[in-house]
Design a protein around this nucleic acid. Sequence first.
DNA 1: TATTGTTATACTCTATAACTATA
DNA 2: TATAGTTATAGAGTATAACAATA
Lengths: 157, 157
Amino acid sequence: MDFSSDSARDLPATEITAALERLTRLFLRLAPRGELSLTAVSVLSLLGRSGPRRLTDLAAGEGVTQPAMTQLVSRLQEAGLAERAGDPEDGRVVLVHVTDAGRTALAERSAARAALLSELLSQLAEAELDGLVAALPAIDSLTSLMPDERPATVRAS
Amino acid sequence: MDFSSDSARDLPATEITAALERLTRLFLRLAPRGELSLTAVSVLSLLGRSGPRRLTDLAAGEGVTQPAMTQLVSRLQEAGLAERAGDPEDGRVVLVHVTDAGRTALAERSAARAALLSELLSQLAEAELDGLVAALPAIDSLTSLMPDERPATVRAS
DNA sequence: TATTGTTATACTCTATAACTATA
DNA sequence: TATAGTTATAGAGTATAACAATA
């Protein structure tokens, strides 16, 4: 094998960007109406994995403003998916917990999404699917490289 | 090589779904504020590639309602990125054109995105980058499999 | 009548600015 | 004073329903 030429390193990021853009659009349109927003999913998922978090930390981690997180948590709370609790060590702090209903909703959503995507994946050629699997490590790395502090406005269409 | 076992076909779609979901979120947060929405980009891109289109066709193709497309085109027009023109053959029809400013804005946005992503890609190991490139055909197929008629509400966080 | 597009209205999610409460 | 969080208000983008104009 020749490791010195034709490296992927030489490929313009433009191609990958374009592909990711189409993929993002596909993924957003895959969502049935009335579902949890991507930020909501991300928050519930984090709370489920790592336990209660401060509202400010959640806002910073998700790249949204503190008021936006206040409102998201309020919506989650009204839906019974999360709860606010005080911090005994600091009266100003709000600790956000995921509820059992929140865990259930998250699991159901994941299953539904996987089913939808599964249907699409089943239409891929074997080689294409292998390619997708080969990309998983890169996706893991990329997403862990994501800076937390970017306060980007997320617009979805 | 063994093509009969350990096929990617056997992998749970759950893993791929989760990875693509994280990737989508990363990509959405990569966007500087005040940018064009994904639908706007998709519309301008289509108009640039294939020429003027009817408003109804654009709405169907983007999976949004006709009123939503009316409003998007109005915003694009106010921003000078697109224009409305009548169809001499059918007085009811509005043909949407991209302007030179629209082409420019699209090109600049693509370049900016590619630059941001490039920075992240440069931090990947060679093998990871190769894996990402290997996934491009699958992403192309997936996005072309996307049904046009899904009227999903697009929520981005 | 059917089709094309717009207007009216409401909802979700976001932002910035101003505010309250605690440290 | 500084920090944590909320409230107030506005804007983008979407939907459904009702409408106008043309075929």
